[in-house]
Amino acid sequence: MMPDAERELAPPEPLDLGATLAFLRRGRGDPTLHTAAGPDAWREVWRAQRTPEGCASLRLTVLDGPPTAARRLHLAAWGPGAAWSLAHAPQLLGDGDDWSGLDALLAQRTVEGDPAAAALHRLRRRTRGLRLTRSHLVLEAAVAAVLEQKVTGVEARRAWRQLVRQHGERAPGPAPEGLTVMPDGVGWRSIPDHDWHRAGVGPQRMATIRRVAAVEPALQRTLALGRGGPAAVAALRSIPGVGEWTAAEVLQRSHGDPDTLSVGDAHLPHVIGTWFTGVRVDDAGMLDLLAPYAGHRHRVVRLITSLGVEAPRFGAKATIEDHRGR
C-alpha cells in the first residue's frame, strides 16, 4: 500500500536510532512501537501515533549506515495523521537537540582535571548518535508516566500494553500485526472502571489519567513553552495527581527537555550516585552531583543510563501486586 506521505531525511550527524527512540518504548511488548528481531532490529521501526490530526503509522527505515549511526532514512506514514507525523519526524529523531553546550562544558572540566567530567566526555564520544527525542505528543507521554507512578516497571508496562490493545485501534496502512494506536483523550476517559482494575491500575492513577485526558488540548499548548523548564513543569503540575516526577518524565519525552530531572524516582539517584561515587545516594545527593551540569542534567542522565548502569540492590524487592482477579 502506497504511503499517504513520505520523505527522506539526512540527519546533520549520524543518528543512533535505537538509543534515541527506545526512550519512548514501554517495554518490549509495547503495542505502539515495533522493531524486527535480531541484531539489526532498529534498521526498520514502526511507530503508531495518536496525533492532533488523527491516528497514523510511521515507518522509519535506515537507508545508509548502521542503525547505530544512520546517515540517511526513509520515512513513510499512513492515516489521517500522516502529514503531521512526517512534519514532526525530524524532532522525533532529535533534530534541534543541541549538545554543543554540554560538549564544551565537559571539555573545559576535563582540562581542569575533573575525573567525572573526563569519564562523561569519553562516554559522549562513544555515544555521538544519541539524541533527545521530542515527540510533540504530550498526552501519550503523560498517560504512560502516570501508569508508572509508584509501581514496578513490570506492572506499568503490563497496564500500558493491556489498555492500549483493548481500547486503542489498529494502526493504519500495512503496519505489522498488533501495532496499535493508543486511545484519544475521550477514549481514555471512557475506559470503564473494571478494565482499569483488570489492568492492575488503582483508583488514584485511573482518576489522574482521566483528569489528564480531559485537558488534552491544554497539554499540547505547553509545547509552545519550549523544551521544558519551570513554566512547563508548573503547567503540568497544576493537574491534580501530576507531581514533580511525572512532570519530568513527560517533558523529557514530549518536549525533549534537556535538564529537568525525575526527582522521586526509586532507582535513578542510586544509579547516578553509583556512577559518580560508587555509592548510592538520595535525591538531594543526585541533585548535588548533577549541579555542575545545570541546563544539561537530563542529557548527563541519558549518557549514564545508556551504559545500562545499575545500582547495587539491597533489601527486599518491591512486591508486584495483582488486583486483576479481585
Score class of each variant (00 low, 15 high):
Y293K: 08
A266N: 11
S85K: 10
G54A: 04
R128G: 06
R50F: 05
Y293V: 01
R205T: 07
G173P: 12
P14V: 05
E6P: 09
E6A: 15
D288G: 13
L93C: 01
A76T: 06
R165M: 10
T180V: 07
R71A: 01
W188L: 09
A231M: 14
H121C: 11
A159R: 07
G153H: 00
D103Q: 11
D64F: 11
A116M: 15
R28T: 12
T110G: 12
L24Y: 01
G65M: 03
E244C: 09
L179W: 10
P90R: 01
V271E: 15
L106C: 03
L86M: 00
A87I: 02
I304S: 10
I239D: 05
A48D: 04
L120H: 04
F276P: 03
A171S: 15
E112I: 11
R198E: 08
G256H: 05
D259F: 04
S100C: 01
L73W: 00
P67V: 06
R26Y: 03
H88E: 08
D95F: 01
D322S: 11
G79A: 02
H270G: 13
T20V: 05
V271C: 07
V250E: 10
S100V: 01
G243F: 13
W99Y: 06
L75D: 06
R26W: 00
L147K: 05
T68D: 15
K150Q: 12
L102K: 07
S238G: 15
H296V: 08
P258D: 13
K317M: 09
H267Q: 08
W188R: 07
L287Q: 15
G168S: 08
Q91W: 01
P183M: 13
G185W: 08
T260F: 07
D265N: 14
D40M: 12
M2E: 10
R157A: 06
F23N: 08
W245K: 14
R158D: 02
G79M: 00
E244P: 08
R125M: 13
S57R: 00
G178I: 07
K150T: 12
L261A: 11
L179T: 05
A156Y: 01
G187V: 08
